[in-house]
Design a protein around this nucleic acid. Sequence first.
DNA 1: TTTCTTTGTGAGACAAATTCATAATAATCA
DNA 2: TGATTATTATGAATTTGTCTCACAAAGAAA
Lengths: 302, 302
Amino acid sequence: MYLELRHLRSIRAIHDAGGLAKAADVLNITQSALSHQIKGLEDQAGLDLFVRRTKPLKLSPAGLKMLKLAERVLPEFDALEQDFRAILSGKAGRLHIAIECHACFDWLFPVLELFRRAWPDVDVDIRPGLAFEALPALQREEVDLVISSDPEKLPGVDFTPLFDYEPVFIAASGHPLADKAFIEAEDFRDQTLITYPVDKTRLDVFTQLLTAAKVEPATIRQVELTAVIMLLVASNRGVSVLPDWVVRDSRYNHDYVTRPLTKGGITRRLFAATRTEDTALPYMAHLIRLGRTEPPKLQRRS
Amino acid sequence: MYLELRHLRSIRAIHDAGGLAKAADVLNITQSALSHQIKGLEDQAGLDLFVRRTKPLKLSPAGLKMLKLAERVLPEFDALEQDFRAILSGKAGRLHIAIECHACFDWLFPVLELFRRAWPDVDVDIRPGLAFEALPALQREEVDLVISSDPEKLPGVDFTPLFDYEPVFIAASGHPLADKAFIEAEDFRDQTLITYPVDKTRLDVFTQLLTAAKVEPATIRQVELTAVIMLLVASNRGVSVLPDWVVRDSRYNHDYVTRPLTKGGITRRLFAATRTEDTALPYMAHLIRLGRTEPPKLQRRS
DNA sequence: TTTCTTTGTGAGACAAATTCATAATAATCA
DNA sequence: TGATTATTATGAATTTGTCTCACAAAGAAA
């Protein structure tokens, strides 16, 4: 049996219009075409879909089953069409995010909350496990937005600046290094450094300070959660380097001190990487705008 | 947008097979055809269903929505096909029954119970309100079986004999007519006759006795339920004429007497009327067989 | 690179759906 | 009941769309 949507639409139209001729009119085909179509369908199925004994064509039991399927299924297709229209008009879409910087969760979550309210039909998600290969994944359309602090010249990928931040040194209040006005690479040599469990190439402490100075901390302890890092630092189990927006977050109200790295401090810039084709999408533009304005508010809130 | 089932099947196949070429193989078309088809679909929709950047074709967000629809909807079509096959093989079908004789409920119900167990996929129903125009309704395929005691020569309609029954007179034990060995037309002239609320042409008392004798009972009282008729008769509110299978039914164990109508009694025969095309259907034949064997058992059970 | 695999494209062949004109059939009405 | 009207069916021609074939193009892999 070779059933097609056309047939379901016809069945439904004939039933609704109460006749073949009127239905043909609704479907914008000739009455003859409809008649041929139904006949072909009945030949395929091997049984009558309509009762011919009566003149305004009436559904047979089998035809009724088919009508019920049509009424169940056709609206779903209309819904899909609606969805597609929404995507086309820019009201809907997918926005899967990969974040290279582990701590970005802290400012991204509130931003996404705002975003969701504004764009309920956009499918927002943060894809874990893509931190390393984030940009290729972006090109392969596995994700649609990458938060990164290392812009590259890649064809088809735009890097839009979000905001600047400062990776700052953090230690317990009574820590010996708390006496210094700023922290240098050498200061880490005999310390226990607490970091996120990611590669050194993706940790500001190393890329911006230690790697160049060829300094290796005495111990490195890897911890997943920001809150736990803060806890360990406050209880003097080690020191860490975290973005300013993290240490100023009121939620982590522990007993610790922060110091700039190097005399003038280090400034880093976060970027939103998007496919060129997507950069101008209304919802994408909106999220980037939120990503530029909201996190600084967080930082000021100290 | 002009979506067809073919497209859903293709989308699903490409996803399942993990590639256009392999999918084309599954679908028994060339890889080229599939490529054309998808392209056409994307042109229609105005957006990409697949990510071309990667080589084994991968679904885009929009394509994924379509896949989900396919996986939701295609099984339903398979189910319909199954249903049709069942109808074709005679395992399934519709069996809507119209009964001209009001009292037939009494033996039909237990028969239908047996039938349902044997043919779970047959849609059994008793259509009310069709008692009068039952045979035309049968021809119009509004019902599939008519229980009737008046066979007619109708084109395309078969009358299969079921069983014989006897309309018997029934009155309260102390009723004056209880003294007679049998009841004649004249006996009704000063009686209150209790009947079902249907036309005289469909009541055995009239068609078999009173109409020919031009006798009219003193009063006619119409009552819907058999049980209520029995109750009224037992409490001497009137007399009635009912088929023997009713008065012998153990459920109506009231205080009444029964007498034959006319000296030798009247014998009537019930028929199952079916469309000629349906008569040989396995489930139809089975129901008719049940209708011939089961009710007599009921009668014997006295 | 080169090679292999996978997808895209154009022209022609083919199949299927539609239309037009008209026949057949049921329903309605006088 | 016959005439009339409304509705569905049919056949042939036409249009439309889908598929195949042969080959080009483009990623992926070696």
